[in-house]
Computed example of a mutant assay.
Amino acid sequence: MQSNRSAPSATVIPVLSYPDVRAAVDWLTAALGFRERVRIGEDHRAQLQVGADGAVIVADRGRDGGSDDRHLCKIRVEDVDAAFARAVEHGATVLEELTTRNYGEREATVADPAGHRWQLTQTVRDVAPEEWGGLSFP
């Protein structure tokens, strides 16, 4: 699978929404040992790493959904077009059509029959976070 400096390398990446991104990052790093790897705006998102291959994205709740919509799981796949077609064929509700992002990922978001949100993502090119306004940490 192609790597991208703008995206975590883990296969499954929870996206957790918080009312205060910076406070959540501070707590997760201090209490659980996460390390911030990419910051997207001061209060929009942050990508955190833990251990050798663990990852989580902390997102601003105001931008990513209300109080009943606090999480999403990203799944890194080899062929996002095929994975998206398969999910739809099996009854997934399309929440966001396939889109190629400026940060090097091609993504689509679906909901399963229970309403859980899944974002399917494939790296299409390696992009430094600074190229689209992010900030990376060594």
Rank of each mutant, 00 (worst) to 15 (best):
Q2K: 15
S3I: 07
S6T: 04
S6N: 08
A7R: 14
P8C: 07
S9A: 12
S9W: 02
S9Q: 15
A10V: 03
I13K: 02
V21R: 03
A23I: 00
A24H: 00
A24T: 06
D26H: 01
W27H: 06
T29L: 03
A30Y: 00
A30E: 13
A31W: 01
A31C: 13
L32G: 03
G33N: 03
F34M: 01
R35D: 12
R37L: 12
R37P: 03
V38E: 02
R39S: 14
I40K: 00
D43M: 09
H44Q: 12
R45L: 15
A46V: 03
V50R: 07
G51C: 04
D53Y: 06
D53K: 00
G54A: 09
A55K: 04
V56G: 05
V58W: 02
A59Q: 12
A59R: 03
D60K: 02
R61M: 14
G62Y: 01
G66A: 08
S67W: 05
D68L: 08
R70D: 05
R70Y: 06
K74E: 11
I75R: 02
D79R: 12
D79I: 09
A82W: 08
F84W: 12
G91H: 00
V94M: 11
N102E: 12
Y103C: 01
E107H: 08
E107A: 13
A108C: 10
A108E: 09
A108P: 11
V110A: 07
V110R: 11
A111S: 13
D112H: 04
H116G: 04
W118A: 08
Q119P: 01
V127P: 05
P129R: 12
W132D: 06
L135R: 15
L135Q: 15
S136L: 02
F137M: 13
P138G: 15
